Simulated scan of single mutants.
Amino acid sequence: TGVGSKYVEKAVYDRPTYKVDEFVATGTGGYYLTDKKEVIVISMGTGSFFVKVTENEMKHLGGVGLGGGTICGLSSIILNTGDIHEIVPLSRKGDVAKIDLRIGDLAKEKLPGLNLDVTASNFGKADAQSKPEDIAAGIVHMVIENICQAGILASRNTGIKDYILIGGLTKFFECRQIIEDFKSLWDVKVTIPEYSDYATAIGAVIAPDAEKEEI
């Protein structure tokens, strides 16, 4: 499944092979990993998209061009490395509070519905003296935060308050920090299930036969 499946044109290792639409695989896999009857699945890969899943419906709600590709691309330009295995430990050493401008930097008291630690401007504090580790933390935080926020905004009219995060970016520790921040900001429940980075593959396996296109 996914964009890369377009290049698979024959059986793999002589084994029967089939393709499943990425939105179907993502929705199916995400739903399988939760015990909720209705949920918004936020898939965070190279780019990101959102799928509404209930017992009777699966609907693609849209997406954004933010994801692992953004993190690697910006890091290549700014930090001279696009290697995720170098970016991850670097970001863990950084302090995003030295990069992002927060409500607390602009106001002495919290605003209605906005705590002092809510981001007012990603990279609003960054300057030429910013340290590489802080920049790395800022890049990762900006991408993950805005993916989650876009997913919540894209699904506001569904009335669903349960969200599942899946994809490779769920392995960044920043994900769990952002989830905690969003609980009070949006009155939603966001969880990262076990095997979150394999959800789409799981969905491709268990998808209904009618959704499988044999090669």
Rank of each mutant, 00 (worst) to 15 (best):
Y18V: 06
G94E: 00
L111C: 10
S196I: 02
D105P: 02
D209M: 14
T1G: 03
T200L: 14
G94A: 04
N122C: 10
K6H: 12
L66W: 09
Q129D: 06
T170Q: 04
I147K: 10
R92V: 00
G68T: 06
I103N: 13
M142A: 14
C175G: 01
L90N: 01
N115F: 13
G67L: 02
T119S: 12
I40T: 04
N56Q: 13
K110S: 04
R156M: 12
V20I: 11
P193R: 02
A207Q: 08
K36A: 13
Y18E: 05
D35T: 15
I135F: 02
D14I: 00
V51I: 14
G167F: 13
K171Y: 00
R92P: 00
F49Q: 07
M142E: 01
C175D: 01
T26D: 06
L169H: 07
T28E: 15
L185Q: 13
Q129Y: 08
G30M: 08
P132Y: 11
F123T: 02
N146C: 07
Y32L: 07
K6A: 15
I84G: 05
E145P: 08
S43T: 05
M142Q: 08
T26M: 15
T54F: 11
T1Y: 01
S121F: 00
S121M: 14
A137G: 04
G29R: 01
P193G: 01
F49I: 00
G69Y: 08
E194Y: 14
N56Y: 11
E213I: 10
L61R: 08
G167A: 06
G27A: 03
V143S: 05
Y13W: 07
E109S: 04
C72A: 15
N56R: 12
T34W: 04
P132E: 10
G113P: 14
L33S: 04
G29N: 11
K171A: 05
K212I: 07
G45I: 13
Y198I: 04
S155T: 05
H85C: 09
T26I: 13
T158R: 02
L74K: 13
I160E: 12
K110F: 09
F173Y: 09
D127S: 11
E180S: 06
T17A: 08
L101F: 05
E9N: 05
L165T: 01
Y32Q: 15
S196R: 08
L114E: 03
A107V: 14
T70W: 03
K125I: 03
E86A: 10
L106E: 08
A204L: 06
F50Q: 09
I202P: 10
R156L: 11
V39R: 07
I178V: 05
